[in-house]
């Protein structure tokens, strides 16, 4: 008769054995019985290396999950995988990053004209879109005010609308960042540039007076005209 290794080996040696298992095996062990659950799931040391490997090279992990990892690494592991499948960033997430903008092949002449200059965009909590002061396209002050908002589509999905440009579809990248893309551009998180520094004081966008409802009303109306007018 095979003996239960947890009973036969005691906690220390049993953990030594479990340390050789990958996260999937460890999770299956955690569902065997109560004592196996305690041993395989509630030992942070067993999960810490798996979590470190899972997070290695990833662009973004929500703070809530980082905090969860302090308490329960195996749950942080599960939550990380679940969260990595979430296609739409929250407004706070969208506003927290610096985004690198690249033109797709359709407008490759635009990229050629701009040379190697990088184009960066910020989505701000007051629903304005801004750029660094030395922006190669906009210069010191953008030619027109740019606004962003999430807009539900008829198929139930949500897109990121900027003025009346073709809507940006949000998808996750393999490194757990986001890609915002339409037929013209592709935006990804520019980790090297750090977080969104916020609108500088005195910048016109800092005094933006339009509410979200007013922005939506203005551009949804124009989109309607574009499609049917």
């Amino acid at each position: 008769m095979m003996r239960d290794p947890l009973e036969a080996l005691g906690p220390l040696c049993a953990s030594n054995v479990l340390a050789f298992l990958g996260p999937h095996d460890l999770a299956r062990c955690g569902a065997v019985s109560r004592s196996w659950k305690a041993r395989a799931l509630h030992d942070g040391q067993l999960w810490a290396p798996h979590l470190a490997r899972l997070w290695d090279g990833k662009v973004y992990i929500p703070n809530a999950i980082r905090e969860l990892a302090q308490v329960s690494p195996h749950r942080a592991y599960s939550e990380s995988l679940r969260d990595a499948a979430r296609q739409l960033p929250t407004e706070a997430e969208l506003c927290s990053f610096t985004w690198a903008l690249n033109f797709k092949a359709l407008l490759s002449w635009f990229s050629t004209a701009l040379g190697s200059a990088s184009i960066r965009r910020y989505f701000n909590p007051n629903h304005t879109v801004t750029a660094p002061a030395d922006d190669p396209m906009w210069g010191e002050v953008e030619p027109q005010r740019h606004y962003w908002y999430f807009r539900p589509e008829v198929d139930g999905s949500t897109v990121l609308q900027v003025n009346t440009y073709p809507p940006l579809v949000c998808t996750r990248t393999a490194d757990w960042g986001w890609e915002l893309s339409n037929v013209v551009v592709r935006m990804i998180i520019d980790t090297a540039a750090g977080p969104n520094p916020g609108i500088p004081p005195g910048h016109p966008a800092a005094q933006e007076a339009l509410t979200l409802a007013q922005i939506e009303a203005r551009f949804n109306g124009l989109l309607w005209q574009n499609e049917f007018g």
Binding site: P5, L9, C13, N16, V17, L18, A19, F20, L21, D25, R28, C29, A31, V32
Partner: peptide, 14 residues
Amino acid sequence: TCQAAAKLICNKTT
């Protein structure tokens, strides 16, 4: 020996 014991469990269902 611990690695050998882990192999008993590896790739098994609950």
